[in-house]
Design a binder for these strands. Structure first.
Lengths: 148, 148
DNA sequence: ATATGTGCAAATGCTTTGCAACGCC
DNA sequence: GGCGTTGCAAAGCATTTGCACATAT
């Protein structure tokens, strides 16, 4: 039902050489720069298809633009994204999932879905100024969230 | 610096009679229905201004549309929102907060911030939706999240 | 008076769609 | 050969902006 076209292959190939989140347009431009000739609409259609089939990770930026990248993990997970460079760490938060579903059900909500994204500054972009970070060992409770 | 115009007053008044998240367009229509004559651009401009000054709560829906409503609580909290009618329940998830900050620190991220929004169908809109999205079964543990 | 706010229409920017041509399977 | 795919341009949408006019303070 899903065919292998030159275009789809090129899109996947482009994505595979890239591990930060990128918009459809950025991906399209990148491909054009690489000499690929693929229509913008095709890029959109494929990103959508691939995302729906779970092969891509989608992230909606604050302004509503959709960002994609290759999946590292096909299951449900969240992202810790650097506001400066887009560097991304995936993580799981199983307790969160059940917690959300529980609270939703308590209120009679069904077909529940949620979005959780964490933004911050990674090691390379944290404090280029008088950074007085209280870098003391963090309280560890058990981990309810685990890096992938 | 901020003036009291008939339009701004009307917008605030409309919002005050309403406690679910609504889009700029919905708010505009509502006002029109109420006999108010305010330009759509004015609604957009004011919602933006008010949100920036902290008088309104903003929420970005999955498709990138911005939803607004009057603030109920100025502290940090999350929302359980009905995809159909915008009906909203606020809740706290204290464990989530510490969990997120812990995982962020583990990866050397600082200045961490996060967004968590839960979307679903409330009791009035669960049945008739033709939306056949594959839903994974959930197991529930204790709740670490509490309704506000 | 004058900085702000407003209305309208045109402009943006991202994304989707109609449709004829194309090319996997 | 049939049906998913593609390309292009046009259409959609939510939102923004340019500009002349109106108005709070």
């Amino acid at each position: 039902m899903q065919r292998n076209t030159r275009q789809r292959t090129a899109i996947l190939e482009t994505l595979s050489r890239q591990d930060d989140f990128r918009s459809a347009q950025q991906i399209h431009e990148q491909m054009k720069a690489d000499g690929e000739t693929v229509g913008l609409a095709t890029v959109y259609r494929n990103l959508q298809t691939l995302a729906r089939s779970g092969r891509l990770d989608v992230l909606v930026a604050g302004d509503g633009e959709s960002l994609y990248r290759q999946c590292e993990d096909t299951g449900h997970h969240h992202h810790l994204v650097c506001r400066e460079c887009g560097r991304t760490v995936e993580f799981l938060a199983p307790k969160l999932e059940s917690s959300m579903s529980a609270i939703a059900h308590e209120h009679g909500f069904t077909d529940v879905d949620h979005t959780l994204e964490v933004f911050g500054l990674c090691t390379d972009h944290s404090g280029q100024d008088a950074d007085s970070e209280p870098e003391q060992p963090d309280e560890d409770d058990e981990d309810e969230a685990r890096t992938r």
